[in-house]
Amino acid sequence: MSGFSIAQRRKLNSQLWIAICGVFAAAVAVILLLIMGYIIREGISAISVPFLTHLPRPTGIAGGGVANGIVGTLIIVGIGALMAFPAGVLVGTYLAVYSHKRVAQSLSFVADVLAGVPSIAIGIYAYALLVEPFRHFSALSASFAFAVLMIPLVIRTTEGAIALVPRELREAATALGAPESKVVLKILVVAARAGIVTGLLLSLARVTGETAPLLFTAFGSQYWELSPAQPMAELSLQIFTYAISPYADWHTQAWGGALLLIVAVFVLSVLARLSVLFGREGRHGGTA
């Protein structure tokens, strides 16, 4: 150590710490990639035509698939989106247009906090509101839970997207005599549409694969169940049941299901990012 001057020691110290940071960053990426690689490897061997098109077999009997779970996931997420999208976009628009009001600022904060509430608590909420009074589980209650999970995300991304619209655009429209509703609907929302779509896609990615609130709302089902008023099968619920079961065949199917979920979530996330890119190109396309 005595062979080094202070300056050299500081330089070495700096390089050492940068290397440590680099190792940590690489380690995070490598571990997460290894996990994904493992799931893809296990999942691909599980996915087959019967896996995608058949109903589950009774407990312990080999074969069968998760077709009802895939359809159930689409139905539950779809109805949830129908509830969350209009409400979320409206609230987000309000928050952006009236961002100077204190009410809007507090509501925006509430949305931020709600986005982090444990999904299991929201599951209890859906149970108390839509399961207990009717005395049976239903896909609709699961959709409601998903909607509560999605709304804050939709609100915040809509708000952010509209806030990014240049102020001059709004002022010009108002100066031309357009009423408030037209300024908002035909100028602000249209200019911010790419950002809003991104938010919708991200909220879909957020709830796809969410399991906890489904345990006591959708509950799961062995059959083809298409009525939202009844208990319904769902892919992530099936993965959970299969994973903690003692049957090797079900374990394989759980990996297959996990792969399907990852693919769905990645496609949604990538589409969301592309939507941002296209929005940016559209906005600058005219001037550049």
């Binding site: 694969g209 969410e210 399991t211 993965i239 996990a258 979920l261």
Partner: peptide
Amino acid sequence: VPSIVYGL
């Protein structure tokens, strides 16, 4: 990535 995947 959904938590069920990490759980599995």
